[in-house]
Each structure stands twice: as C-alpha cells, then as structure tokens.
Write a protein that binds this DNA or RNA. Structure first.
Ligand SMILES: NC(=O)c1ccc[n+]([C@@H]2O[C@H](COP(=O)([O-])OP(=O)(O)OC[C@H]3O[C@@H](n4cnc5c(N)ncnc54)[C@H](O)[C@@H]3O)[C@@H](O)[C@H]2O)c1
Ligand SMILES: NC(=O)c1ccc[n+]([C@@H]2O[C@H](COP(=O)([O-])OP(=O)(O)OC[C@H]3O[C@@H](n4cnc5c(N)ncnc54)[C@H](O)[C@@H]3O)[C@@H](O)[C@H]2O)c1
Lengths: 226, 226
DNA sequence: CAGAAACCGTGAGGAAATTCACAATGTCGT
DNA sequence: ACGACATTGTGAATTTCCTCACGGTTTCTG
C-alpha cells in the first residue's frame, strides 16, 4: 500500500489489480496479532505451561476468543479440540509464519536521542532482532560504536546495507531528511521500514512502512480526556 | 474499550450498552487522522499557505480525499465548496476538537533508556505537550532532573499527579511493573495512558490506553519481507 | 466404555471503515 | 451577470474486519 489516487486515472501498477495468484488475503490486523500471540506464548513457555486455550490467549490480550481461533486458522490447523494449543508448537509455527525463526537484521539511520535509546534496548535481542549497523551523518559519531553497534557514514549506506544483508531499516532522523533517507534505503534494496519520524513517506507499493508516531498517540489520547 | 468477555455472561458494565446519549459515534481511526491533519496544517501554515483542498491534504498523507472530507464533516462544515479549507481556521478547529488548544500535561513513569529519550525530545513541546513530572523508583535518580524535568519517587505518584493536574501518563517501566504502575496512575485519577511496555494492561472501560509496541511493529514487518 | 466437558474450526451475519460518485455550492474570469 | 470550473458534503456501494453460534472432535471421569 502507498498512495491512493482516487481522483486521477487508475495507475496501471500491478498492485491494485483485482486478485493476484495469492491464496487467501490475510488482513494486516491478523499479522499484528500473530506477533502478540507469539509474545504471550513466549511468556507461557517461560512459565512452563504446556497447553493454552484460545479463551486464555484472548483474555491475556483483551481479545475475543473466536478471533484468536480464526486468526490462527488462516495458516493451518494448530489446535486440538477439547484441549487447546500446544504452547511451544504453536509458538514455533507462528515464528515460522512471521519469518522470525531466524535473526532479523536491522539498520538504524539517525543515532540521536531516540536512536541511542533503541541501540541500548535489550528487548530487541530477546525477540531475535539484531541491529547490525547504524548510520549517521555527524562526523563526531561516525566511526564510533554505541551498544556494540558500529556507526557508519550515511553516505555509505547503500553499500553497507547490501553487504550486511539488512532486512529492515529504522528511520530516526530529523523530519526534513526522512524522505531522502527513505529513498536511499529503498535504493539499497530495503523494502520494510520502521519510521519514527513524524512525516509521511512516499514509497512504491512494494515497500512496507510502519509508522510509530508518538505525537499522534498523545494528541489522540487528549481527545478522550472526557 | 477493554476486556471482551465473549464467552462468559455479559457484564452489566454500562460500557457495552447499545448507545449512550452520545450524539454520533466517532470512529477511533478518525481521531488519529485528525491529529495527522493538524500536523500537516501546521506545516502548511509555516509555508504561509492560506487554503488547502481535501485532495492535497489527502495526497500529503497518502489517504483518499473523500476520507478527509468525511472525517472533517463529523465535526461540522469547515470547507468552502470550490475553494477548499482555510488552513489556519481548520487547524484551530481541529485543535479545539482534540483538546490540544491548551497545553497537555504529561507524567512519565520510568526514566530509563527510553524515558530519557522522551524527556529530551523537543518535538513534544512543539506540539504543545509538556512532560511536567517524571517518576522512578531508583534512589539514584529520584530528586535529580533530566531535560528540565524533576524526577520524583514513584511512591509519591498519586499525590503529585493530582497536585500537578496531569492529563496523561506515559508508561516506560519494566514489563513486570507495568500493571501495578498503571493501577497507581488510574488511582490518581488518570484516564489516558500511553504505554511503551510490551504487555497488555487491564483497565476499566473508562480508561484509554494507547500502545506503542516496537517489537510488534518489527515482527509484523518481517512477515512482509517478500 | 458411555456420557459429560472442553475446546477447536468455520459459515453466516453483522459492524465498522473506506471508497465511490454526484448533486449542491461556491469561486473566478470576463 | 454569467458560465466554466473547482471542490465540498454525503448517501450508497463496497470492503474490511469482528463476533456469534454451533457442529464436530478429543479428552476426561466414573
Ligand atoms: N527523541 C524522541 O523521543 C522522539 C520521539 C518521537 C519521535 N522522534 C523523532 O525521531 C527523529 C529523531 O529524533 P531525535 O530526538 O533522536 O533527534 P536527534 O536530533 O537527537 O537525532 C537525529 C540524528 O540524525 C542524524 N542525521 C541527520 N540527518 C541525517 C541523515 N541524512 N542521515 C543520517 N543521519 C542523519 C543527526 O546527526 C542526529 O544524530 C525525529 O524525526 C523525531 O521527530 C523522536
Ligand atoms: N529502550 C527502548 O528503546 C525501548 C523500546 C521499546 C520498548 N521499551 C520498553 O520500555 C520499557 C522501559 O525500557 P527501558 O529500556 O527504558 O528500560 P530501563 O530498564 O532502562 O528503564 C526502566 C526504568 O524504570 C524504573 N522503574 C522500575 N520499576 C519502576 C516502578 N515501579 N515505578 C517507577 N519506575 C520504575 C527503573 O528504575 C528504570 O529507571 C520496557 O518495558 C521496555 O520493554 C523500551
């Protein structure tokens, strides 16, 4: 998904075509929940729980149990009627589906306040995410390391991103550089970006961007203050 | 919204009742977009643009122009046919609707890696958000200040939150303290929480929680890597 | 081993959100 | 003053997502 051109002539990008040879269409919301299930299962595993029901899984996440079952059923039959799901088994399956059964390699661009916090976040490693490299354009930062991650010159981004086989880019630069950096990342073959910058990114349909926008979250919370 | 009890007897909490005396029901997604519009309008204002069409607004956010118009129409008639919307006027209206026409007072709980980055983030002030106080339970941090914000003992949370007339709480503590801190905040009268902790919070229906969950974002991006 | 209990998978129905499409309304140039 | 044009506001159609409800399967109990 990217731009919607509702008014102008329909672009002949294959992306908006009726239904590609894909099997079934899986809602984006389902994927996000898979990830939530995965984490709950990880906790259950630590608690040495062998089995879990859709009901319990749902309760631990504030969801409806039918939704849990339906979400999982998109990908196969993992449950045992009368019993529930086997924790480890289900977790492994979900990890495989999400592609997190191997380490995910990340590149961080912009090592400022936020970038630094991300570099020293232990939670990522716990989930199998590895920030392999970081980039900045500030001379004083280039060449140094933070949280065991080497900081490279943003000018060398394309080369290093390819070399290091990066999967996902993290954007944490000032707003007025976001689009340009985004394009560098795409140019380097990246097609998944996590964007912390409060700016809309224009990207081809093949590239996935997830936005994390704190101001939006706070502002919209403000609306609900009675 | 909080727990869904799909299986057990319907709880007689007034929250799930058919339709309270509310006027029209405004989708949550609309509120989030209002906030996006507000920011784009702020940029347009800086560029000295007087007017803007729903089409342009949509293009700048990757949305459909009909959606922009419909969103705004929930709250009144702000546009002028054949012309568009007056930038400053619309912006002021949206800020009024969101309640951001006055400063929003925030309390941060947990001044670790992430909390520190948040304290030194200039972007908040720009949007009219003010982190008024911070809390931690680490002796070495209590009493000091970071980014001009005083750090208090978490034990005094209730008293200070009331005293300082805090609107929204920000949760950035370790996962195993999240639910307890959340309850302290609610006990102190808070009913809007921004939660960075990767854990589900159980709260009464009257309390709004927005989740910011980085691992989920990365994990779900991973799914889309081809 | 029979009957009860637990729980999954899923079709049908519903609710929510988005997009379409167009009549209505205004602007602007001449 | 008027016709050409731009753009809004909104019912209707569409799409996306969620919940209900139940048949069917497995386990458990006595
Ligand atoms: N700090 C926060 O808590 C926070 C919260 C929400 C959003 N954000 C957003 O995240 C982004 C970064 O915030 P921050 O507080 O870390 O800012 P910052 O100014 O501390 O850091 C930005 C870093 O990006 C580097 N940089 C600038 N241009 C670059 C380029 N072209 N290529 C590579 N690196 C470049 C700078 O040298 C700097 O180190 C901003 O867009 C901000 O709005 C930050
Ligand atoms: N650092 C990141 O980039 C990042 C990213 C995503 C999510 N998170 C989440 O945010 C939370 C904080 O992360 P962090 O990296 O800042 O951790 P951290 O350990 O650096 O900081 C946690 C802080 O909370 C304080 N604390 C602990 N219990 C408390 C209590 N009961 N009341 C008040 N303060 C208390 C600790 O003293 C510490 O200062 C974690 O749940 C983490 O999973 C962090």
């Amino acid at each position: 998904m990217s731009e919607n051109n509702p008014d102008s002539p329909p672009t002949p990008h294959a992306a908006t075509s009726p239904s590609p040879p894909t099997e079934k269409k899986i809602p984006k919301a389902v994927i996000k929940r898979l990830s939530l299930y995965s984490r709950v299962l990880q906790n259950l595993e630590i608690m040495d729980r062998e089995k879990v029901s859709s009901r319990e899984l749902a309760a631990r996440l504030g969801l409806n149990s039918a939704q849990v079952r339906k979400d999982l059923a998109y990908f196969g039959q993992f449950g045992v009627p009368g019993l529930g799901y086997y924790v480890s088994d289900l977790r492994q399956n979900i990890k495989r589906i999400l592609g997190t059964d191997r380490a995910i390699r990340l590149a961080l661009v912009g090592v400022g306040n936020l970038g630094t916090a991300l570099l020293s976040y232990a939670g990522f490693a716990r989930q199998g995410f590895h920030i392999a490299v970081a980039f900045d354009c500030d001379r004083r930062k280039i060449g140094s390391t933070k949280g065991n991650v080497r900081i490279y010159d943003a000018a060398d981004l394309a080369r290093i991103v390819r070399q290091e086989e990066i999967d996902i880019g993290i954007l944490a630069v000032p707003a007025d550089h976001a689009q340009a950096v985004c394009e560098s990342l795409i140019g380097a073959g990246i097609n998944a970006i996590l964007n912390f910058v409060p700016a809309h990114l224009s990207v081809p349909d093949s590239v996935h961007v997830h936005y994390v926008d704190l101001s939006i979250e706070i502002e919209s919370l403000s609306y609900y203050l009675r």
